[in-house]
Design a protein around this nucleic acid. Structure first.
Length: 301
DNA sequence: AACTGACTCAACCGCGGGGAT
DNA sequence: CATCCCCGCGGTTGAGTCAGT
């Protein structure tokens, strides 16, 4: 667009944020609420561009952000949502309110994508070369082999987490917490609605829109649907079906998955949307299968 | 202990969308 | 309608850290 980069101005600082800067930013937002980022560096004296301030707030200082290891459930959510929405990290993040789009994006790029790719290779060769299936541990996936457990958050992240926690407490204790916090939450909600709408736009023709799914599936149902155990089970069923009845289509496999799910205990009612998600997942079932096996087979890592 | 390559993730950059004028 | 300005998103980078030798 020919616009000069916003952070190219002389005197604009780059690089990691210091705790002092964080406190200044947090103080300002606590007082004025998030938004109007243009005025933030002007009014605070921070030598940062507005973009940088917004990013710092939304990704690290905003209250309610969960940092550190992703749970198996979150992994499952990300896998499935990525399959459904593509690299719409903001849309995906709207389903995981405690996680930022940046966090999810990083996690996908550094852990999940790599694992999926790696296992895709292994699985492809094993399916093509023989009818044998990569060995699954009988105890199933217990989460201990998850890439998410490999590392914890960085040292500085823990310091910003402290600031974030401090802010949460600060807002709670503040005489006018609800004004600022509520404003932030409203903006968050608006943002999420926007994101959902965006996600809906990106869903294909006759698919139900993402917001419809949100409307018709409760959070609990949705979450249960996305649990890693469910994904693993589905993928495993798919593999079993394929191995026993050669030539069966992926749709058939998924139908059998659906039937299996229907008959299984401890599951939410098998709703239309659940079926839709299963059907929709046809195209991405290989990915799910990969992940499932990835996590089930400790020998891979 | 020192070196090196791999990995992670915070931060930046460029672009597009949308509201204001 | 055209232009400007701001915000938010997705892709990318590079400094810091870790693990292996």
């Amino acid at each position: 667009m020919g616009r000069p980069p916003c952070c190219d101005k002389v005197g604009i600082k780059k690089g990691p944020w210091t705790p002092e800067e964080d406190i200044i930013l947090v103080s300002y937002i606590q007082e004025h609420g998030p938004g109007n980022w243009r005025s933030v560096p002007i009014n605070t004296g921070l030598l940062r561009c507005s973009k940088s301030c917004r990013l710092r707030w939304t990704n690290y200082l905003r209250p309610g952000i969960k940092r550190g290891n992703f749970t198996p459930h979150e992994e499952g959510m990300i896998i499935r949502l990525q399959a459904l929405l593509g690299n719409k990290w903001a849309a995906i993040a709207s389903y995981l309110p405690q996680r930022t789009d940046n966090d999810i994006k990083n996690y996908w790029n550094t852990h999940l994508k790599k694992s999926l790719k790696k296992f895709q290779t292994v699985l492809d060769s094993s399916i093509i070369s023989s009818s044998s299936i990569p060995q699954l541990h009988s105890e199933g996936w217990n989460g201990t082999s998850s890439p998410s457990t490999f590392r914890s958050c960085s040292t500085y992240a823990s310091s910003t987490e402290n600031i974030s926690k401090l802010l949460e407490g600060w807002m709670r204790d503040s005489p006018k917490p609800n004004i600022t916090l509520k404003k932030a939450q409203e903006e968050e909600q608006q943002s999420n609605e926007k994101k959902n709408a965006f996600a809906a736009e990106n869903s294909q023709c006759h698919q139900p829109k993402a917001e419809e799914v949100c409307d018709l599936i409760s959070n609990e149902e949705l979450e249960q649907l996305f649990t890693f155990e469910n994904l693993s089970k589905m993928a495993w069923e798919k593999v079993s079906t394929n191995s026993t009845s050669q030539g069966s289509s992926l749709t058939d496999s998924l139908n059998s998955v659906a039937e299996t799910k229907e008959n299984s205990e401890n599951r939410p009612p098998y709703s239309f949307h659940e079926k839709w998600i299963l059907d929709e997942a046809t195209a991405q079932v290989e990915d799910l299968m990969d992940l499932s096996l990835d996590c089930s087979s400790g020998s891979i890592f």
